[in-house]
Design a protein around this nucleic acid. Structure first.
Lengths: 412, 412
DNA sequence: TTGACTAAATTTAGTCATGAAGGAAGTCGC
DNA sequence: GCGACTTCCTTCATGACTAAATTTAGTCAA
């Protein structure tokens, strides 16, 4: 029913996280954004100021009333570490509170090796060793389903992982090598693990569309097709952590020959418009040679090859149809498109736009679809933002690890 | 963030509603089901007992510890009124706290008439006049989208309603004619309005699958195809109240001729497997004459007409595919099938089962689909259960009207 | 029938957050 | 320059809920 937080760290940590991610903010704005009463914010900030974590900054020019006093973090330089695991490498970044990437690196990685998880732990501890600034936590994004962020047991067919103990093993590895500051000894370093698309949704929550909307979809186009769902400001994961698997929406045509999907079934969306499917289609249609890459396909389309453009347009048409269905099902405010594939969006779009709009109910026709520019480090940055997003998660998602994050944010 | 309930009525009302819908329950079980601490339940029930609303019943034989003392409602006979609006009539039932239907009736109704809402108010006040027992509230189910239960502004294309002020007008009508007990004068009679499928989801929450699962879909087969979604025990409505519109999932085959849907688009699921579509298909295939009805079609199938059976099976095949997609999107624990159409389910099933299971990801293949028997008054019963479900709704959904319900449940 | 054990309910001593009322610090019109 | 107004922030009393410890009421085994 209603209930209050089990530990008293949620609100102060929320304030600190908000100030860190949003920058200087007035007390009233904090109360609004966090859904608290102004009275509570006064109390909490008073305490945080007394402990030297938060400081009062300048006033903003008023617009007819008492001018707002901005609050900011006082000299703390916490960072979050983010890692994205793929089939052949691990990308790692360190991210400031405000979402800016301080450093990034890439490491060879074989998820099939017997000691893969140990190797992953090694990569992380190496990065942690050279870190300066307090480490708030580690976020890990994997292309698969994760039971909860807090435990971090992973099923990832593309990596060959079944019930992989990613969270437990990484927590152990990190605990042994972390630089031993006054905090670290006592409370342990939080390690949050989540599906890679959900990490992007978390990043959007903090630094992107989530600042203006509380309910949205993050759809990724790349090797696979994924969907992260944010509802009322928290990531929605479904009953088994399997929500948003739109890459496996059945979109086949009755009677036609069905493409085989990596999931074992046939006729999945991904089997039509995933990266491999695009290459296969392009090859079948004589646009690419057997060794052609996505870069080749994009180059062909950009230089006016109509066959290449049609490959994208056909994919866009199918995506539009499928996405319209998803929107009818979950009714989000906005949709954000991300992923490696959006660099070719101008060609997808010619197929996507008409099929998407005509498939929507009249009441939904206006739903905005924002296509954001993509950079290679975005996956890892998303993973890092799991850490700072956890104070905003409804209790439970972050769980024990979320508590650790909050303890660090609220610590003097 | 966390926060507690603004008014102190939520928990006591929750306890009363739980006892009413579930029957006698021990304090510990109440605490578990409501997500409260035993201490809170002790306090609240002490008060309720002192005020004569709740009473202690017998103990249950213990299994090794102190035996649980069951609590039950003391002699109150509150009822809820439920109304389901269709294109040609209004079905009304009165429902006891435990979900049993006490009386039911049907009234001619023309939603296109200029004074349709006044007429609807009349129907309700007439029913209220002959009621005995305290009226806890009125629930109304409409085949369309509703902004919130609390306000009750309705868009219903099939009724020809746009921005119809159903909630406000009914509240006014009910307020004027309600039997004036001590409560009624001061607080007003709550009137909750919701999409018809959501009302079924609410009924399932209280009396059906919701007792064992906190996350499920309620899919209706009938004139249209609908889907109510319950997540963490509360009805999920989407950003604009448009979630679950699976009747308009695009399911067309590329290149084929597309059936026109009532929504104005083509190729919607409903345009293939809604009641009208089944009749049209049956006619096209020579199974039915132009005047044939669904009853004729079902009779033909039951008596062994393979063409008739194939009409259902084809529909089942398409439903299975679409529903698999919905499951990949929202990942519920269970699915419940309801609606007028399920009486022919044995014929749907032959097409549904294979297409559904083969379209699911391996991890989802086991998701249970329960088909429940259907009775005509279930729509109206669902509407009535909106009233008792509101104490369990996360704050906001019930809103102001939910507060009124809680006030009544908690009143002496 | 006595003691060990278990589970349910209650008491106690809090914590968290709130609403209501009021003070503080500006702008604006005159 | 003075009151009216607006907006931001704070104080205070209080309510809702909780965790932990304790009491209560049974079962079970010897």
């Amino acid at each position: 029913m209603s209930g209050q937080s089990p530990r008293g760290e949620l609100v102060p940590a929320g304030v600190v996280a908000l100030l860190g991610t949003r920058g200087p903010t007035s007390r009233t704005a904090i109360a609004r954004d966090l859904g608290l009463s102004p009275a509570t914010v006064t109390q909490v900030t008073k305490d945080l100021i007394a402990r030297g974590i938060v400081e009062e900054l300048e006033s903003v020019p008023s617009s007819g009333g008492r001018p707002a006093r901005l609050l900011g973090l006082a000299g703390r330089t916490g960072v979050a570490l983010g890692a994205k695991v793929t089939a052949d490498h691990v990308a790692v970044v360190t991210v400031e509170l405000d979402g800016s990437v301080r450093s990034s690196s890439s490491h060879d990685f074989d998820p099939g090796a017997t000691n893969a998880l140990d190797r992953l732990g090694e990569i992380l501890t190496t990065e942690i060793a050279v870190l300066d600034g307090e480490l708030l936590g580690v976020g890990v994004g994997v292309p698969g389903s994760v039971d909860t962020q807090a435990s971090g047991i992973v099923d990832a067919p593309t990596l060959g992982w079944r019930a992989a103990q990613v969270g437990p093993i990484l927590r152990q590895a990190v605990a042994q090598r972390v630089n031993r500051s006054k905090l670290t000894d006592t409370v342990g370093t939080p390690v949050l693990v989540d599906n890679d698309v959900n990490t992007l949704a978390a990043a959007e929550r903090l630094y992107g569309i989530g600042r203006e909307h509380s309910s949205y979809l993050v759809v990724t186009i790349g090797r696979g097709i994924g969907c992260g769902m944010v509802v009322d400001g928290t990531i929605y994961r479904g009953a088994n952590g399997g929500a948003g698997e739109i890459g496996h929406l059945p979109v086949w045509d009755t009677g036609a020959e069905l493409p085989r999907c990596t999931c074992g079934s046939t006729g999945c969306l991904e089997a039509y418009i995933g990266a491999d499917a695009l290459l296969r289609t392009a090859h079948d249609r004589g646009v690419l040679t057997r060794r052609g890459t996505l870069a080749d396909l994009l180059h062909a389309a950009t230089t006016g090859n109509e066959q290449a453009q049609a490959v994208y347009a056909d994919a866009g048409e199918r995506l539009g149809r499928a996405l319209a269905g998803v929107i009818h099902t979950v009714d989000p405010e906005v949709v954000v498109l991300l992923g490696e594939g959006v660099d070719a969006w101008e060609f997808w779009q010619t197929g996507f736009e008409p099929s998407f709009r005509r498939s929507l109910l009249p009441a939904r026709k206006g739903v905005p679809v924002a296509v954001e520019p993509w950079t290679e480090d975005q996956w890892a940055r998303g993973a890092a933002s799991l850490v700072l997003a956890s104070p905003f998660d409804s209790a439970g998602n972050g769980g024990e690890q979320g508590r650790l994050v909050r303890a660090r944010l609220g610590a003097s």
